[in-house]
Amino acid sequence: MANTLLSLAEKTFIVHGVDDNYRTDGRNRSEYRPMEVETKVLPHTSGSARLRLANTDILVGVKAEVDTPYPDNPNEGKLEFFVDCSANATPAFEGKGGDNLGTEISNTLTLAYQSSHVLDLTTLCILPQQKCWKLYVDVLILQCDGNLFDAVALAVKAALYSAQIPKVTTATLDGGKADIQLSDDPFDCVKLDVGSFPVLVTLCKNFTFIQIGENCVVDPTSEEEECSAASIVVAVMPNGRITSVVKTGYGSLQPSTLVKTLELAKDIGIKLNAGIMNALKEEDELGSQREIFGFLK
C-alpha cells in the first residue's frame, strides 16, 4: 500500500521464507498476527469498534439514520460504506493521497455485503416506500502495517455487532406523510444479527522471482505485500459460503490455483469468523460495567 522499499536480498530472503513455510517473524503461511478488538469506543455513534492487527489500527463508526428507500426497492433499507485513510498512517495519505485506496476498500466491502444472504435489507425497512433505516459504516484507517482488507472487515463486523438502532414505537401513514416515533429510552434498541456477516481473507500469491507454485500467504506484512505480484481477497461468511472474490495486483493465476486458493480461504474464513465472534461474545459477558479504554491505555 504505502511504498516500502526493499533490496533484492531482502526480497529473496522473504520469498524463500514463504516457500519454506517459515516467514521472517516465525509464522507459518496460514497464521495471523496478534489481534485486539474493542467495541463501543465512540459513545456518540450507534456502534463502533477499534481493531488492532499488529501495527495496523482501524477505527469504525456506525450511524443509523432515517431515510427514504430507493424507488426500485421500496421495502429495503440501505447500507453504505466509507473508508478514509487518515494522514496519521503515512504522510502519503495527505489530502487526496489516500482516496484511491479508500475507494478500493469500500468497494470491496460493498461487494462483500451485497448478497441478500448476508444482510437482508428488508429488516431495515420502517414504512415501505416511505421510511427506512440507512446505516452508514465509516472506516478510519489510522495505521498501516499490511493486510488492510482483513483488518477493516473484522472491524466493520465488530462495529455492526455493537450497533444499537433505536426501536421504532409507532410508524403510521398520516394523510400520505409518514409519522415515525422512536423510543426515547436509550436502552430500548434493536441489535443487528451479524451471524451471517462475512470477513475478508487476503491471500498473497505469486511472489516474484521464484516459481513457487501454489504457496500463498495469509495476513501479509507490508514487506511481504511488496514482494507479491497478485493477491486474492475473498469474502467468507461464517457458514463457509463465499460472497465475493476480488483479485488485486498485476500477476496472473492459473484457474486450478484459484480453486485451491478459494478452498484455503474458506477454511481460514470460518476460523476467523469464529475467532472474532468469540471475542465479541466474551466482551459482551463483561457487561456494561466494562471499562472502555479507547486510546488511553
Binding site: L42, H44, T45, S48, L59, G61, K63, E65, F82, D84, S86, A87, E94, G95, Y136, D138, L140
Partner: peptide
C-alpha cells in the same frame, strides 16, 4: 499541517 474531522465525529445531527 492537516486538520481533518472524521466522518462520524459530529456528536449531534448528521454525519
Amino acid at each position: 499541517c492537516q486538520y481533518s474531522m472524521a466522518v462520524f465525529s459530529f456528536s449531534a445531527g448528521e454525519r
